[in-house]
Nucleic acid binder design. Structure first.
Length: 251
DNA sequence: AAACGCTTCAACCGCCCACTG
DNA sequence: ACAGTGGGCGGTTGAAGCGTT
């Protein structure tokens, strides 16, 4: 007997979430907390499956998420953790506050993998790359090209690719671990009050207003009476403060 | 300006595991 | 012990954006 789908998919919406759907989901979770994802879409008035709601919340709507590319320090940590844990993205993500497994997985596949290869490191084993038979063939071809006067004909593509790759390796070593911080969503675009990090559950005291104007939402981060800017991760890294004690505050 | 190819990442899919009755 | 269920996880997909020709 086959497994039942996680929800009845007939009539359910798929694809990108609209602002209205986001608003409904946020409203519901802020009012009721995280429970029984299967029931969430029905109760929140969403034509989505529970899994889709959970994913949207954990990967995008959660207020404690950091946005933008991984910092140099985070990237190094991901590489180190990956060498120990392998593709256990959720475990890796648990070491990086405000980052999701999906985000780290995507960043690994699109940025870090390439970067490691260019540096001559196998992203799977974290060992120095052993040249493949194909690489050796290219090397041989290049040597032949260099040796013969009319060698360029028919070998242009190979030698150019090889040259390009070599340039990449050089530049990759030069700018290793240089990541551009391009925040996609400003911290002041999210809203909540008194959320303990890194707890993902919304405390009952959490209240919300201004949902009609998401762009007007804002966070402030504080420890005790001290206002410490908009980036708690950087702050507690720099100051060595205990992240458990951080609070979000509405401003 | 248009066509094409490449890159990125949000979202989906399906499997696995823990829990419960 | 077993089957059903919910949630979590990792792999994959595809639309959108961007760069190049």
């Amino acid at each position: 007997m086959g497994r039942q789908p996680c929800c009845d998919k007939v009539g359910l919406k798929k694809g990108p979430w609209t602002a209205e759907e986001d608003k409904r989901l946020i409203n519901f979770i802020l009012s009721n907390g995280q429970c029984c994802w299967r029931a969430v879409p029905k109760l929140a008035g969403l034509l989505r499956c529970g899994k889709s709601c959970r994913l949207r919340w954990t990967n995008y709507l959660r207020p404690d998420l950091k946005r933008g590319l991984l910092s140099e320090a985070e990237e190094k940590m991901v590489i180190e953790l990956h060498s120990k844990l392998g593709n256990r993205w959720s475990k890796i993500a648990s070491h990086l506050p405000g980052r999701t497994d999906n985000e780290i997985k995507n960043h690994w596949n699109t940025h870090i993998k390439k970067k490691l290869r260019r540096m001559g490191i196998d992203p799977l084993t974290h060992e120095p790359l052993v040249p493949s038979a194909n690489d050796l063939l290219h090397q041989e071809q290049r040597q032949q090209v260099g040796a013969s006067a009319d060698g360029r004909e028919g070998n242009d593509k190979v030698s150019e690719e090889q040259q390009g790759e070599e340039e990449n390796i050089t530049s990759a070593v030069d700018d290793a671990f240089c990541t551009d911080e391009v925040p996609m969503i400003q911290p002041h675009e999210m809203i909540a009050q008194e959320i303990q990090l890194p707890c993902m559950e919304w405390p009952e005291s959490v209240c919300l207003w201004g949902l009609d104007e998401p762009n007007g939402w804002g966070f402030n981060f504080a420890q005790g009476d001290e206002q410490l800017g908009l980036d708690p991760f950087t702050q507690w890294q720099r100051t060595g403060l205990d992240q458990e004690t951080w609070k979000f505050e509405l401003f």
